[in-house]
């Protein structure tokens, strides 16, 4: 009985929605993470620029982060309203593909320039950032110059890191350590443990501890100092350049099979790697653009660490081993 009532209600709402949608212009629904659509994020500018070219309306839906974005898509399955998912990162790609919800873009993406020449038939990079240890120059006079120095360094100089079970930067550090240390990663973690002040559930908590002066180092991005230089006019916070190279996080967008207007979706993906979109990214998302911008980047970006080598693991490999590596991490970090 209840089910019948529900479905009648659903049908009625559905009808109503589709009628009202038809009355308006075309709508492109973009699922992304919250900070992308916030007032100072890239969202408002991207929306304005794209709407000028498409005679359509862009509707952003912002969830907590990239992981929540994928969860939401899994929950909605084929009924999703999304035309575009914007904000997954390379670690999540094979899981995202496994849902069968995404459609290859079929576009020429030669304009994309990211370290490691990452390319994919379904997902297109729109920005990237290298993970890095960011430190407070007022406190740290001799920052570590390599991951090894970080691991072996003075345990009284602490760092705040993120938990790989709950956050993407946390997973990034895990993969970086794995890339550098391989099978020796557990031993390295056991050493690094003494320098870890605390492991936070997400980036915000760790970075909050850092800017409050509680800890002199934090696990973040090479681009973090750009924010402080541009917005706060201070070069107090700097990223440490590590000689082994840096692990990269590439943020990507893709179109969904169930999109009601695939041409429009494809048009948005193309727009995503055009200078109009890319111009917005550096000073709003505080990440590196994945393609040409129309003007040179702000001066501050020139002062950022330029990694000599980039690490990136295949997402299939990550999907296969993630749980085992997290278990390894747990064991190493819980040891007394």
């Amino acid at each position: 009985m209840r089910r019948i009532a529900l479905s009648i209600f659903a049908a009625a709402t559905g009808l109503f929605l589709s009628v009202s949608a038809h009355a308006q212009e075309k709508t492109l629904t973009v699922y992304t993470y919250e900070s992308f659509v916030s007032d100072w994020g890239p969202g408002p500018k991207v929306k304005e620029a794209f709407e000028k070219t498409c005679a359509c309306k862009v509707d952003f839906v912002g969830v907590a982060d990239g992981v929540a974005l994928l969860t939401r898509l899994k929950l909605e399955d084929e009924n999703t309203d999304a035309d575009i998912a914007l904000g997954l990162d390379t670690n999540l790609i094979s899981e995202a593909k496994a849902t069968g919800l995404f459609e290859p873009h079929g576009l020429d993406i030669s304009a994309v320039k990211v370290p490691g020449n990452y390319s994919d038939d379904t997902f297109i990079p729109y920005d990237y950032g290298h993970f890095a240890v960011v430190y407070d120059t007022k406190v740290m006079k001799n920052p570590p110059r390599s991951l090894k120095e970080l691991v072996d360094g003075d345990p009284s100089q602490k760092i705040a890191i993120e938990d790989p079970r709950t956050s993407t930067p946390g997973l990034g550090l895990l993969l970086w350590m794995k890339s550098v240390y391989g099978d020796q990663a557990p031993e390295a973690w056991a050493k690094l443990k003494n320098r870890v002040l605390t492991v936070t559930p997400g980036w915000s908590e760790a970075y909050g501890l850092f800017t409050k002066g509680e800890v002199p180092m934090v696990f973040s991005y090479t681009t973090s100092p750009a924010y402080h230089m541009v917005e706060e006019k201070t070069d107090r916070y700097q990223a440490a350049s590590f000689s082994e190279g840096h692990y990269i996080q590439i943020e990507v967008g893709g179109m969904l099979k169930g999109s009601s207007d695939k041409d429009l979706a494809r048009q948005f993906l193309k727009f995503m790697i055009s200078p109009e979109f890319q111009d917005v990214i550096p000073t709003t998302n505080w990440m590196m653009p994945a393609a040409e911008t129309s003007e040179p980047l702000p001066e501050a970006f020139g002062k950022l660490v330029q990694p000599k080598k980039t690490f990136l693991m295949g997402s299939d490999e990550i999907a296969k081993n993630r749980q085992a590596w997290i278990d390894e991490w747990l064991t190493a970090m819980s040891r007394n």
Partner: peptide, 11 residues
């Protein structure tokens, strides 16, 4: 959140 932020590690 409290447990993770102040707990110091996954222990």
């Amino acid at each position: 959140t409290l447990v993770l932020v102040l707990g110091g590690g996954p222990a």
